[in-house]
Amino acid sequence: MNMQQVEAGAGRRVQVPLGERAYEIVIEPGALRNAGALIARRLPKARVAIITDATVAGFHLGSLHAALDETGIGHETITLPAGEKTKSFAHLIDVVDAVLAARLERGDAIVALGGGVIGDLAGFAAGIVRRGMHFIQVPTSLLAQVDSSVGGKTGINSPHGKNLVGVFHQPSLVIADTAVLDTLSPREFRAGYAEVAKYGLIDKPDFFAWLEKNWQRVFDGGPERVEAIAVSCEAKAEVVVADERESGRRALLNLGHTFGHALEAATEYDGSRLVHGEGVAIGMVLAHEFSNRMNLASADDAARVAAHLRQVGLPTRLSDIPGGLPPAERLLDLMGQDKKVVRGRLTFILTRGIGQSFIADDVPPAEVHAFLKEKLA
């Protein structure tokens, strides 16, 4: 893989070619200042409802309002509490009612200004209000910029598990301002980085090696950050175009997520204990270690993945999660609620080495149970 060198201050644009539903991902520092012009060009004369959370609003809502006012785009704002627990039926109803009360029409747009939680919730609302409104993603976390804002998966959580209620609803535009990431806490940035590393571990070993050398520059900002986000978005777009509704290859994007989602559910989505990207980091290490246990990949590969994620400050072991975990039986039960389960069969993304992930659709539950018991010991 020939990693491009991007000039400081330069941006990238990634196309998601889905026919009539094709859209563009704009990746550049300061893109939020141009949001009005970008939206007006994509959706002339549309009014918008901005969905955001209280934390993000404090940092970025004023900039988005100014950009919309500059281009004469009418807007309403709905501000929700921050945190994973906002992805609920109760808050979905709040958003739907507010959008209808604002008399937005089908040709208008819902704009998600926030991280993955806001993007998932706002996208679900956009997919069901008036049987489908336009949807614009303005992701403000690294995790959202490289993963959840691209591809059209939307939804909310249920007591039975994460993201079990939702629709596929592609955005009309994604505006990824790489400079807004400087307002993230170090922990949130690291959590998003887990999803960046994931793309290398799926099928881009050269990208993973590039990240091992350049991760500090990605954290510091500048051209390496733009490049890492662009490569991640290109990888996601390529998979989405090949398998939009996750019936086959798109499942590869869930590397680390079967373990990770079970860990999030086990901690009751308590962000003080575990956030999504941290669950994915531990999950990716577990996926490589389990692959080694199944004689698919070497122990060296698992150790290399763990070493890199640990170097950037991510948790890599079950014991890194504060507060303890339920027994292996309960974790296995939570995996059974995963959306990737087909007719009761556990589906995992396993690997034959760095960048050699594949879909294993009939993993023996007894093997997973024994593995988890060992890791919990």
Rank of each mutant, 00 (worst) to 15 (best):
I27S: 02
G36S: 04
E7H: 13
A22E: 06
R33H: 05
A10W: 12
A37E: 15
E7Y: 01
R42S: 14
I39R: 10
G19C: 00
Y23T: 02
P17Q: 05
E7N: 08
L38P: 08
L43E: 12
E28L: 09
I27G: 00
G36D: 08
R21D: 15
L32R: 09
R41Q: 15
G19R: 12
I27P: 00
A35T: 02
V6P: 01
A10Q: 15
E20H: 04
G30F: 14
V6R: 06
L18A: 00
L32I: 13
R33Y: 12
G36N: 07
E20G: 14
V26E: 12
E7T: 08
Q5G: 02
R13Y: 03
V14G: 00
A22S: 11
A8N: 14
E7S: 12
A8Q: 14
E20V: 10
N34Q: 15
R21P: 02
Y23L: 04
I27A: 00
R21E: 14
L18Y: 00
E20I: 03
A35M: 11
Y23P: 02
I25F: 07
A8K: 14
Q15N: 07
R42C: 07
G19F: 09
A40N: 07
A10I: 15
A22L: 02
V26H: 14
I25Y: 08
L43R: 04
L38D: 11
E7L: 14
L32W: 06
Y23N: 08
E20F: 06
A31D: 07
R12L: 08
V6F: 08
N34K: 14
I25K: 11
G11Q: 08
R12H: 10
E28R: 12
L32A: 09
I25T: 09
P17L: 02
V6I: 15
A31Q: 03
R33V: 04
Q15S: 09
Q5R: 14
P29E: 12
R12V: 11
A35S: 06
P17T: 00
E28A: 14
R42K: 14
G11W: 05
Y23V: 05
L38Q: 05
I25R: 05
R21V: 03
Y23S: 08
G19Q: 01
G11D: 04
A37K: 11
G19E: 13
L38C: 02
V26Y: 09
E28C: 00
R41L: 11
E20W: 07
G9N: 13
A40K: 13
P17C: 01
R42P: 05
A31V: 10
R41D: 12
P17K: 03
V16T: 02
R42E: 15
N34M: 14
Y23G: 00
A37W: 01
A37R: 15
Q5A: 15
R42F: 07
A37L: 07
Y23K: 04
P29V: 02
R41M: 13
A40R: 08
R41E: 15
V6C: 09
L38G: 01
V26M: 06
R21C: 09
P17D: 10
A37M: 05
R13C: 01
R13W: 11
G11R: 06
A8V: 12
G19N: 11
G9R: 12
P29H: 03
A22I: 00
